[in-house]
Design a protein around this nucleic acid. Structure first.
Length: 270
DNA sequence: CGACACACCTGGATGC
DNA sequence: TGCATCCAGGTGTGTC
């Protein structure tokens, strides 16, 4: 799925087309994705103007006076701006039809994404236990260091915990740890304050750089204009098992850590 | 509370 | 070519 850079790319892609537009109609082609789609999407959203688009963690929020549509792309979801009359493709699950004559169309083969509703003045339960934004001011090495004391889980698993810091998924956790020179299996609680400063800085740098490249396209992900992400060409370790490290030439290792395939250079990362 | 296994779902790649 | 198997960008839930 889309991690933070892909969701941010999606946000930037749709914002100019949906901000200030009125949702004329919500067309659902199925009644549930990961969870049932609440009635509010068809009873409250139509007729509302989208005042702003926000990304929080890997979620997107379309804010209106009556409440906010809460979207998640799951593992394989993508949003496109399209002509509502454009042919429906396999796994096109819903359209938000706008007063501009265009539609925001969601496609998601695996249906791990969701479409939910947040009432005005409320914070949806899914957003309540999230850690800080990695590109925001509340996130730094000291935050990670403090949060990690006494934790025995692998540092890579720790970084992917959305209650610690949001937006870092399986690709960027491996990439940031490579950039920081930290072995992904090291216990989170055994990583020094200085090394967390480096990890935090590399998370920021890698995410920001990936955003400038339009994210990473491994198979499904496309920006709302249909463009793939180009960060794949910049991956140093993810998906490169057995290939030489771009820094030292040592074959990249791969192993499942915390149920997710993890990649690292055994020489550059300690 | 933390750590971990599992579940959800489809499609593409791989191997026989 | 056909079929079985494995793997995939996430994350809530249940168990210990």
């Amino acid at each position: 799925m889309p991690e933070l850079p892909e969701v941010e790319t999606t946000k930037r892609g749709i914002a100019p087309f949906v901000t200030g537009r009125v949702v004329e109609r919500v067309l659902l082609r199925r009644k549930d994705l990961r969870w049932p789609i609440p009635r509010a999407l068809t009873t409250r959203l139509p007729g509302q103007r989208i005042d702003a688009v926000e990304r929080r963690a890997k979620y997107l929020l379309l804010h209106t006076e009556a409440g906010s549509a809460l979207l998640h792309l799951g593992m394989s979801g993508s949003l496109r701006i399209t002509d509502p009359a454009a042919p429906i493709r396999m796994h096109d699950h819903y359209d938000l039809i706008l007063d501009s004559g265009q539609a925001l169309r969601f496609n998601d083969p695996r249906r791990f994404g969701c479409l939910l509703w947040q009432a005005p003045g409320e914070i949806h339960p899914l957003l309540q236990n999230l850690g800080p934004e990695p590109l925001g001011d509340a996130f730094d090495g000291d935050w990670l260091w403090n949060a990690s004391r006494g934790r025995s889980a692998a540092v890579k698993t720790f970084l992917m915990d959305q209650s610690i810091v949001v937006g870092v998924g399986n690709i960027y956790a491996s990439e940031a740890l490579f950039a920081a020179g930290v072995h992904p299996k090291r216990a989170a609680g055994a990583v020094s304050r200085a090394r967390y400063a480096r990890i935090a800085a590399e998370i920021r740098r890698v995410l920001n750089y990936a955003i400038t490249r339009g994210g990473t396209t491994l198979r499904d992900f496309l920006a709302p204009d249909g463009a793939p992400g180009y960060f794949e060409q910049e991956l140093n370790v993810y998906g490169r098992a057995g290939e030489p490290c771009k820094v030292c030439g040592t074959p990249i290792r791969a192993e499942v850590i915390g149920q997710r395939m993890t990649y690292w250079c055994p020489r550059c990362q300690r």
